[in-house]
Structures are given as structure tokens and as C-alpha cells.
Computed example of a mutant assay.
Amino acid sequence: MMKEQWVKDLSTIVNPQDVKIDEPLKNYTMTKLGGNADVFVMPSTEEAASEVVKYAHLHKVPIFLLGNGSNMVIRDGGIRGIVLNLSKLDQIRIDGTTVYAQSGALIIDVSKAAAAKSLTGLEFSCGIPGSIGGAMAMNAGAYGGEIKDVIVSCKVLTPTGDILELSKEQLELGYRKSIIAKNGYYVLSSVFELQKGDQETIDATITDLTFKRQSKQPLEYPSAGSVFKRPPGNFAGKLIQDSGLQGKGVGDAEVSTKHAGFIINKGNATASDYIDTIHMVQRVVKETFDIDLETEVKIVGEDLPTDKNKTL
């Protein structure tokens, strides 16, 4: 009965059509993997998002923020409690050289909007398949650029639903980390400061980086993007490639033959297949090079209950 009560209560905060019970999360992840959410809610305003978080805190309901699902593997058993999705908060505004973007806006779209106004500084993000919220939480970066290079401030929700405005310094941005992830904050919006640039140069840079991404990454298959963090003095993809792991995997999960840093879902993989493939890669690289690969992707949710009658 708990799920039904949560749905009833949350439907007074957001549009009832934006509250769903037992929603399949594979529909919201780049891997196309994951079990169901007990309750899935998509508020249309920052105020409503705050009220949802306050409700979860008050009633001690577990709450999980799901962004664009691009850097994440959700286990086959799904996620208990409330899954909060802010993809409807997707406004992008530009005033001079200042760019405002809500958490649900895709960083690719923000990069394109900035480029269209001849603003330079966000070109590095033109191929990052995530939302502003996710990019902020992990200080996303590519091709020599990072969020911390252009961020001014960020508005967040605390785990109790209070709204905070954090400066660049307060965000504590480092390699794939931030105060947002550390304190369990929920990003509402961000402000970036860019510079006026030459339109031809900006367009050429975006074209070049887009080509590099499309030619080197297995975008034709669902994946969680780059699976592992870069180990000091090495590259995860090179270590995996030199370990002879490309084309290998568990079930329909496979280390990409196009880019060894990616694990793809060839069509019918389960989250367990994907996670087992991650563990296989970590084990073999450790045995081969004595290097521990740390995951960049987050693995969340619950496993399916074990079938005790299953014969192996």
C-alpha cells in the first residue's frame, strides 16, 4: 500500500500524469538496462522538486535522483522508494556572455546554444551525453576542458529540500568529483561565464570534436559511456585493449571493439551481465598490469532476488 499512498500524495505536488508507479527505468538510461522504480516522479518546476524532496525527507521515503542516465548502471531489481527525474527542468537562457541552464537540460544542447551566440568555452562538452545536473555532480570533462573552467555558481537542493546557491569555490570541483555528489545535493540550475569567440573557430572545434567522438566511440550501441576513471599515468582503454579484452564480455554485454573503455549492450544484456563484465575487466587488468581500475560509472539499485530453485 505504501507505493499507492506515495503516488496519491505526490499527485498533489506535481501533475498526476507525471507520477508513475513501477516505472521501468531502462526507458531512462543510456544502457537500456535497469529494473523498475517503485514511484517515478517528474516535477515541472524547481519549487515542486523542492516539495518532493521535502516530502521524502518528512516521511522517511528513500529518494534517488536520476538524470539523463548516461553515466550509470541500474541493477535489474530497480530502485526502491521515489525516483526523482528533473528532465522537465530544461530551460537554457543566454544573457551576453552568461549562460543559465536548468539541471535537466542536456549539456550538448547548452554547448550548441552557446556556440550559436558565438560564445566559446563549452565546446569540450559538445559530445558529453549527460544533463547539466550530472555534469555538475561529476565535474564532467572532455578534450582538455572541464565544467570547473566555466562555472560561476550552482543552485541545489539539500537532502531536506532546502535551496542553496553555491559559488564555484563552494562546489569543490575536482577530477570527477564535487561537493554535490559528496553531500547528496540535487542540482536545480547552473550559471556559466563564457567569452565571445570567433564563430568559424567555434564551429570548426565542435565539428572536429564531434567527428572524433563519432569515429572513436561505439555510439551505435547503448552504453554507459566511459566506464573507468583514468588511472594515474595510464589510460583505462589502453590497459583494457592491451589485456586482450575487446570483444569479450558476459551475456550480451561486451567490451567494445571500437573503444576498449566502453562496455556496450548488444541488445539483450541484463544489468547483471554489464556489471559482471565490469568486474571481469577489473580482474584481468589487475592480473595483467597490477593496476586497479576504478569505475567512473555509478552502479545503483538492487539485484533481483536469487531464485533458489534455479539450476546452474
Rank of each mutant, 00 (worst) to 15 (best):
K3L: 11
D9F: 00
L10W: 03
T12H: 13
V19T: 04
I21N: 08
D22A: 15
P24E: 14
L25F: 12
L25W: 05
Y28W: 13
Y28D: 02
Y28Q: 05
T31K: 00
G34E: 01
D38V: 04
F40Q: 04
E47F: 14
S50T: 06
V53W: 09
K54S: 09
K54P: 00
Y55T: 05
A56S: 11
L58M: 11
H59I: 02
K60S: 14
S70Q: 02
N71K: 03
R75A: 02
R75P: 08
I79W: 05
G81P: 00
G81E: 10
I82Y: 06
L84T: 01
T98L: 13
S103I: 02
I108V: 15
S111C: 15
L122D: 04
E123G: 11
C126I: 11
C126W: 01
S131V: 07
G133W: 02
G134S: 09
A137Q: 05
M138W: 00
G144N: 13
G145F: 11
E146Q: 14
K148R: 15
V150W: 04
V152R: 12
V152Y: 03
S153Q: 13
K155G: 09
V156A: 08
L157M: 08
D162W: 11
I163S: 02
L166M: 13
E169F: 09
Q170F: 09
Q170I: 03
L173I: 06
G174Q: 14
G174M: 08
G174F: 11
Y175I: 08
R176Q: 11
I179C: 05
A181P: 01
G184C: 10
S189M: 06
S189P: 14
E193I: 09
Q195F: 11
K196I: 07
K196F: 04
E200D: 12
T201Q: 15
D203V: 04
D203R: 12
T207Q: 15
T210M: 15
F211S: 14
Q214I: 08
K216D: 09
Q217P: 00
Y221A: 05
G225W: 01
S226G: 06
S226V: 08
P231N: 08
F235W: 14
A236E: 03
I240N: 01
Q241K: 08
S243L: 04
L245A: 07
L245G: 00
K248G: 10
K248S: 15
G249I: 03
V250C: 10
E254S: 11
S256W: 07
S256E: 03
A260I: 01
G261K: 00
F262D: 02
F262H: 05
I263Y: 02
I264P: 03
G267E: 10
A271V: 08
D273I: 06
T277M: 08
I278R: 08
V281P: 03
Q282K: 12
Q282Y: 10
R283F: 12
R283Y: 07
D290G: 07
I291L: 10
E294C: 01
E294L: 15
K298P: 00
K298L: 10
G301W: 06
L304V: 09
P305G: 10
K308Y: 12
N309H: 12
N309C: 09
N309Q: 12
T311L: 15
L312Y: 10
